[in-house]
Nucleic acid binder design. Structure first.
Lengths: 222, 222, 222, 222
DNA sequence: AATGAATGAGGTTTCATTCAT
DNA sequence: CATGAATGAAACCTCATTCAT
């Protein structure tokens, strides 16, 4: 009911691919704790339901692709930052975390959803190739991290990133589980999730690297 | 197709309550990445579908009750251990983790599922009371932890437990996401999840407590 | 959970019969467009669900019994009035109508419901005996009516009552169908149902009796 | 198990719309005191259950649409007759009544059912728009009636139609309530419902219009 | 390539009634 | 007589996916 233009060139196809993901993103953004159905995604993209299936083999793979785009964005930024000469601080990491996880209200809900998907709803081949790509990016970033933190022995950069991600996801889930309540008195201050996350990450990083890491405000050091 | 034995006394009812949860547990155990429907649970419990609704107001609340039982078991063990005079080591914690999280293959799948439930499918009142109970147990355990680790300032015991749980859940999700694959090449050695988990928890704890913690094997101490 | 006293004497049983009907009446009164389920009725009566079935063979027969009580009350009043020497006016009839149909918010909803029941949900024997009793009362009242209105030929008293009842029920259903709307613009002034009913009944009666009937206020006439 | 023919054009869709209503009509015809479930309707229409929901938002709205079709047919005939120059007699009205209410054994059961629906099971918006359409048709017919019966003051045409409909519905319900019995001894001769209806309507009309109306058989008269 | 009509499996919940206690 | 636990048939609606056009 909208585009009604055929994507003949490979380029056009890529573009339509993106358009569908964009639509899904917008819907997720609009209501993060609901998963839109295919009809809504198609509608939002200005396409027909069937068309979505020309570009994605299933709804789950669509979600996975969107998730991958999120992760890619994050890795792009992370690797970009690690490539700079300026020493990386924990605060740099926190800033990246904030930008890509907290301020993107779609990242964590989708990631959570995707964790549940992979095991069952996605054909092993797809899951595997997704993981391979992720592993590659993780390696790259992990290596970069090791360059900035000499205390990290080989392989520990990757591990640290992995654990950080796990911690972020886990804490988010615990806090989001009762975001609807006013007070969230169950020990997890839902309203102060960012602060809690920062503290938790700091502990993890200091415990991994083995020494205190400079605090943001105290940056000037001396 | 039934037990045909009536739960008349309150005691019997408790028992049947348990029996239904047991049935759900068995089904979850049998296929951890699938959520059984109420008919299956009833069948497994040797009851009629309607009977399940006599004991639980909805499917989601049933799942939540099962999750709470898991968590309660864990807290019982944790608090029990913390009540002993013998100093708690990280290895004690790891042992508990192993017993309750890793060797109970239903804990983490269900926990993951429950995080997604609370926000939408459970009436706020139920969610709230659940959280309150959890918070209480968490407080108790957190306080116990602080007695064993004097470095932990007030409130940090709770925080450490929370972060540990988040880390466990997060790592599990990342590793389970490709448990079906043979190799799990995405950077998270699925097959060696326990070791990875131990290392991650150690880092988190050392970073939080601020000093190295004795290793299991190195027990001789001096 | 309440009465817990056995009805041994026939008298007691009658009483309990009444108690159940009273409970149903109260519930219907409380929410006239809902039909309570048996559990609610039992609860309201302070009895157990099973006990209700000792007194009524089915839910539908319970409703029918309640309806019959309503109708009986009406006939009692009607026959009582017709037995007086003072000439019956249309206004007398309207007063009875008001008292028993309009001011008893349970009469018409239940009557409507019962019309739908008889054909299917009630065993023919029950339906038949109910109808016989109703017919008898109707005859009695019809005869009384004929005494007051000599224009009514034999049998026309009954017919007039029947038609009146039909008109009342029909109009009520049409007006109640959109009682929820503010304005009810569909030609049936929902808010002025009593006035509409009075006018309709007057027309029916005058058409049946064949002459204008005195109006309330203008009663003295001369 | 399907028609497997797609309704692509708007015209086709209208047709399928009709086909579903037809199927519901047939089922209602077959057993007028039962309300078919959606699966049956779909089956009867040669469609899948889901397809029905493509054309009607809910079961209740489907029933309402069917009812509206009945009413529309009646109004079409009525307005058509009123538009003719030839004076309308009560017998004309009775003929219409017979054709549309009595000989259509689905009209009255469905109407009865719909009265109960509107208040609760249909979204207010739908109910409201339905009523508006009905009101419009009623106005039109009422005005036509007033042209034929000069005794009817403005607004009384609508009122007469409304009361007639109420009387028809009410009498039908009272007589149908024991249609299953052989004799129907409760004062309402079920077997002679048409005659009773005719007499009742005559009374209502004469009482409303204020003068005797010619009788069918006596037509020659002069 | 694009469409969107059609499918139909799948799941939750209600509640009248029975019957063991 | 009284209880209320257990039953299980109904019924609704959603939505991922297919495929005729």
């Amino acid at each position: 009911m909208a585009i009604r233009q055929r994507a003949v060139l490979a380029e056009d196809k890529q573009e339509r691919h993106h358009a569908i993901l964009d639509a899904a993103e917008r819907l997720l953004h609009r209501s993060p704790d609901r998963v839109a159905n295919v009809a809504e995604v198609a509608d939002e993209a200005g396409l027909a339901k069937g068309t979505v299936y020309l570009y994605f083999p299933s709804k789950e793979e669509l979600l996975l692709a969107l998730h991958e785009r999120h992760v890619d964005d994050f890795f792009d930024a992370l690797v970009g930052r690690l490539a700079l000469r300026a020493p990386v601080t924990l605060d740099d990491m926190m800033a990246l975390t904030r930008t890509h996880f907290l301020e993107q209200p779609t990242f964590l809900p989708l990631a959570t959803r995707c964790f549940g998907i992979m095991a069952t709803a996605v054909p092993p081949a797809s899951a595997s190739s997704f993981h391979q790509r992720m592993a590659q990016r993780l390696q790259e970033a992990g290596a970069g991290l090791e360059r900035h933190f000499p205390e990290l022995r080989p392989g520990h950069g990757v591990a640290l990133l992995r654990r950080s991600f796990a911690l972020i996801v886990g804490l988010w889930q615990m806090s989001s589980a009762h975001a609807s309540e006013e007070a969230g008195p169950c020990g997890l201050p839902a309203d102060d999730f960012p602060a809690e996350l920062a503290a938790a990450l700091r502990a993890l990083w200091e415990g991994t690297i083995g020494r205190p890491l400079r605090v943001a405000a105290a940056a000037p050091e001396a």
